[in-house]
């Protein structure tokens, strides 16, 4: 029984991974791509690891749980670092964007 539930959870995880990767290909600029990729791939991989925990348990399950917690903590941090690095290295937002308070504030600092 637990094996079937595990496989179902893993399938959900793979589906979210697929959405995230479609977002990575389709969305227009780096910040939007980071949004799609980070959210969907993080949850998708966590669901795969959770499926491993449900499927087999024991030592493998404990390691899967640790790995899931680790990914849940580090993946958003990596996304902040990348977004900040991209903005500081001068990548512009997509032309359809509405506002960019970060760039406005940085220019204000330069004038002062």
């Amino acid at each position: 029984m637990s094996e079937i539930i595990g496989i179902v959870v893993i399938s959900m995880g793979v589906a979210f991974d697929l959405f995230g990767c479609i977002g990575l290909v389709r969305l227009p600029d780096i910040y939007n791509r980071l949004q799609g990729a980070t959210k969907c791939v993080t949850l998708g991989t966590c669901l795969i690891l959770l499926g491993v925990l449900i499927h087999s348990g024991g030592a493998m399950g404990a390691k899967a749980l640790l790995c899931a917690i680790f990914i849940l903590l580090t993946s958003p941090t990596g996304a902040h670092a990348l977004a900040r690095g991209a903005h500081k290295s001068g990548v512009k937002l997509w032309e359809g964007s509405v506002m960019d308070k970060y760039a406005d504030d940085k220019e204000g600092e330069l004038d002062r």
Binding site: D17, C21, A37, V41, G44, I48, I71, G78, A79
Partner: peptide, 10 residues
């Protein structure tokens, strides 16, 4: 590259 790394973990 970041996304690929997370996928490989899965």
């Amino acid at each position: 590259i970041d996304t690929l790394g997370t996928l490989v973990v899965g």
